[in-house]
Amino acid sequence: MKPDLSIDLAGIKMKNPVMNASGPFGCGWEYAQFIDLSKLGAIVVKSITLKEQRGNPPPRMCETASGILNSIGLQNKGVDRFVQEDLPYLRNYNVPIIVNVAGGTIDEYVAVCDRLNHVHGISGIELNISCPNVKKGGAIFGSSSRSASKVVTEVRRVTNLPLIVKLTPNVTDIVKIARSVEIAGADGVSLINTLLGMCIDVETFRPELASIIGGLSGPAIKPIAIRMVWQVAQAIDIPIIGMGGIASVKDAIEFFLAGATAIAIGTANLINPQITIEIIRGLEKFLEEKGFEAIWEIVGKVKID
């Protein structure tokens, strides 16, 4: 018998625990040339804001040792155009749609979530309180438990959709923040977002990115993500979506063992647009070979004496 990969993530029924991480996947349609999107556990849409955002000036990305540094700056068409132009297309796939929501003020987060409340075909919200790219907002909300819990409380008031909060690793104690968003009403947490970083071109003496500072992602950050997922899993009862540098089946399994109920793949999509599907297949094979009947049997099962 094939192992059961299905999960219930904060009330979202998923056929498997593998989704894309918000950002490099856009709204998914570019990837539909390479994979069947309906095979994913869920699609997580790139950050949506209330109004259209132009994004940061280029260069927006540079390569680092086993990773990339980016500062796209939340370029998106705004919630209204997302609902009109992208959502009808995404609804064609038999897959839960999770919308990542970003904002510069609490009112903005609330307005976007309120707008999404009245729309058919959305399975959940992922609140981006951790994007390090926006000067005001973003990082500020996620970097203290007080502001994190405030924005979650306000959004919770206007939405009945499953609410997942995406945490930033750029804090002294991520466990404290995770606890506070759980208390404020979050149904799940995603971690980790990118780590703040900087690169300098030694020929020109200039920063590699036009915005000077960017977010580091890719295999380089995976051990940090695993550590944080494990620490947070000890402290909260709501499910965790683990992410940060996943590029292989082994990477994904590490996250489950550390305590993640689901995983998301970001940067690796840039290199291999079929990576999500390959990891779903690989997980099934791994469970089968090890004699497990379901994915939940390995969640949090790292052996610590």
Partner: peptide, 22 residues
């Protein structure tokens, strides 16, 4: 020419400024 990420239009890394925006 720009540094590229995905190359398929999703990641928005390789933008250049045009009369119609990035």
């Amino acid at each position: 020419e720009r540094r590229m990420g995905c190359g398929i239009g999703a990641c928005l890394s390789c933008v250049c400024e045009t009369r119609d925006g990035y």
